[in-house]
Design a protein around this nucleic acid. Structure first.
Lengths: 86, 86
DNA sequence: TTGTGACTTATAGTCCGTG
DNA sequence: GCACGGACTATAAGTCACA
């Protein structure tokens, strides 16, 4: 049993998944920003849920991390990932 | 065997899923717009992939249709739905 | 390496009409 | 019930200097 993953906003879910996945791939915000053709500051703010990011930029970020967009908006991305990885 | 669902942009996937789901629930664009607190014209354009919709509005639209956001960005929403419905 | 505030400019999003 | 257009206003996008 784990705790029930509080009521996060979609922004926060997206941002959190983005950050965790980025770190998993050992990328800095700047690396990711470059790969997604966005600014580092912008990525930083998206990760913290401060920006109301658009679907185009969400897609670029997903691309840069080589995941599907639906994974990044999934509140349970972690559990899903652990099933895959084992 | 069905055809392999062409290379749609995330906007088009989202818009298409939105439209199909809306019609499935027998809602007009205006009904949906009202429920999601958006303008009807805007909903029309999002459905056609003309707008770069933001995550907040995507979430409102998902809410209004009573589905999860990840379903609306899923290129294979239909197959997934048919498994559920049977 | 990341966060913050201040800022400009592009475009998201609305409201009014029309066919 | 929907697509399309023009004219608007709100806000997302993007950049900088500095902590």
């Amino acid at each position: 049993m784990k705790k029930p993953a509080a009521h996060l906003s979609p922004r926060e879910i997206f941002g959190g998944n983005l950050r965790r996945l980025r770190r998993l791939k050992d990328l800095s915000q700047e690396d990711l920003a470059l790969a997604a053709d966005l600014s580092r500051v912008y990525v930083s703010e998206v990760e913290r849920g401060l920006r109301n990011v658009s679907i185009d930029n969400m897609a670029q970020l997903a691309d840069a991390l080589e995941v599907e967009l639906k994974e990044l908006v999934d509140p349970d991305m972690f559990q899903a990932m652990q099933k895959k990885i084992g």
